[in-house]
Design a protein around this nucleic acid. Structure first.
Lengths: 345, 345
DNA sequence: CTGTTAGCGCTTTCAG
DNA sequence: CTGAAAGCGCTAACAG
């Protein structure tokens, strides 16, 4: 292998008979330096393909232009959308993004944080795992002067800016729509009780029922732990086989809704005529499943952009004690699975 | 903000009355160092939460423990699966992964390469864009002594190891299955002519037709440029409305197959009875669409693991001139969309 | 077994 | 306008 020795500032300086510091300044067009010197240095550098050694520069300035990004799961439509937005935004400012996943495990999240701190990112974007409560491991970033921005799945125990979606309102609107469509026994398959946005969605669900004086029953609320398709299937089966089955399902996520639909189809229920189904997150699959699944769009790409932008601002202002919070609005996307009224017509 | 001054080796050395180099060596349990010295240093370091400055270490050793990973698209079931595998594997060896996307644009791919080279990754994993032909920009990595491993979408113009799936065989088996199911007029919606795996799949398709003496018509082969759902829809419409319509579609990708299915449903064709459909890649959506879409699984997670492992080996052996190639076998996943025979029974 | 020394490539005072 | 010199934190050859 041909190991080309890289050209350094020293080489340029020697060649042009100037000092290293002059060469360094010339490259940045420092106002102190004579126009001709600048020109000479730049031309030489150009001609010989000088590339600064960023390892040295970063070491000197103790920053890396790398940003860490941790999500619970990578193979996940919503999160990959957020990542995509975050990366595109980072690119604009010359930052690279280090991506990692926690698999919703606190253990893995800690490991990811540690290797990221080691390899010295300038800041962290994180959507925490289901198991994360306090987030002391995130505190380490702050104590090292590296800002953290939380998004989507967040904890309030940590004093950082947050970018979320208005889960409460999203859920409220979704359930509201079900009520307007004529459903009267609305079940909710929710997420874990220790996860903030699961609670927000649950509250939105409750509020909508209360506002419209619709029946509320504990038996119609079930908690997922894994948020899986199978849980949707199982809970749907359990509830539909009970003495007082619901006539519609509002699900914490499209995947769960998919399980519900699978059960309902197997059991020969007609969707949306007999039973309505509503998801959350508006994944690709909501479009392609049959019947089309109504859902709540979370604007993942936008969230990625906003969160990254916020983080980069913090990094550039050396600001770690910011509490700014951005809450994006959701958008209700109506498809066939919840259109009882229109179906009847 | 409390800017805690970080503890350095120098501090430890001064405090313990030894030299910096001794401290450094003690921390690594160098055999030359006395047991007691090692113990003393380690204890002090532990007690005062010494964390090496990796920026300095990396600068010194000119390596970063970061690996670059570029894919055409991030929000893409197959690629996110590969990324997931690659990241999980990298973690095992203490490497971080810098992720970027090219949007299938040569321009973006070059930019991604440049910022990655700057921020000094130790190596690169890449699936090239549709527009990439020669890949001179990738050559830059090699000349800097940084290994490159290509995966899935590759170019043979570059002398690097490659990890791919046996596209030819995958396509052959898929078409073979269609023939066995009794389809006789098999259309193929293919990818761009300059993209290697699109060509491989096309060749597999042709070979299967030839081996079984099945009709071959140019009119039944159409080339996508964007590989979009709409192209699937449009080509299906075009072919089905032609004088001699096919009785089945083998599509370059599940997304395209989805477009075909959408058209067929709209036009009231019965799948798979009248028309069979076969995708490629086995995305999540293949399971959930109705009817279930038969497809060819590419083992993305495995590909990510294998490619990353290979790359890390090259990095650790300082080896840039390796031509090793791994070709994974595909797996045919049969669902309803292609089961004409079973449907008839 | 341990310390001295030099140096990685670059930035940045401080002097001229 | 430019140069000399110090130093970022760590490693490693060399010399005891």
């Amino acid at each position: 292998m041909i190991e080309k020795k890289k050209l350094t500032l020293k080489d340029i300086a020697k060649e042009l008979g100037i000092s290293v510091s002059t060469a360094s300044r010339a490259l940045k067009e420092h106002p102190d330096i004579a126009k001709e010197t600048i020109k000479a240095v730049k031309e030489y550098a150009e001609a010989h393909h000088y590339v600064p050694n960023f390892l040295a520069v970063n070491f000197r300035k103790s920053r890396t232009f790398n940003i860490g990004l941790i999500v619970p799961e990578l193979v996940h439509h919503f999160f990959s959308t957020v990542i995509s937005g975050a990366i595109d935004e980072a690119k604009k400012y010359g930052y690279n993004v280090l991506v990692s996943q926690s698999n919703d495990l606190l253990k893995d999240e800690k490991v990811a944080c540690r290797t990221m701190l080691s390899s010295s990112v300038d800041g962290l974007l994180i959507s925490i795992s289901n198991e994360t409560l306090e987030g002391e491991h995130l505190q380490d970033f702050l104590s090292e002067g590296k800002p953290v921005v939380q998004f989507d799945k967040i904890t309030d125990h940590l004093n950082t800016p947050k970018v979320t979606v208005d889960d409460f309102e999203g859920a409220y609107n979704a359930v509201n729509h079900l009520i307007k469509q004529g459903y009267k026994k609305i079940a909710h398959i929710r997420g874990r009780k220790n996860v903030k946005n699961a609670n927000e969605r649950y509250e939105g669900y409750l509020k909508a029922l209360k506002d419209h004086h619709v029946e509320i029953t504990e038996n119609w609320v079930k908690s997922c732990s894994a948020i899986s398709e199978n849980e949707g299937y199982d809970f749907a089966k359990e509830m539909m086989e009970s003495a007082n089955p619901p006539d519609s399902f509002f699900c914490i996520t499209d995947l769960v809704a998919l399980g519900v639909i699978r059960y309902l189809k197997e059991a020969k229920y007609e969707i949306p005529y007999q039973i309505g189904v509503m998801g959350f997150s508006n994944w690709k699959l909501a479009e392609v499943v049959s019947p089309g699944l109504s859902s709540v769009d979370q604007h993942g790409y936008d969230m990625g952009i906003k969160a990254m932008k916020l983080l980069i601002e913090l990094i550039q202002n050396q600001d770690c004690e910011n509490e700014e919070t951005i809450e994006l609005k959701t958008k209700l996307v109506i498809r066939d699975s919840s259109l009882k009224k229109d179906f009847i017509k």
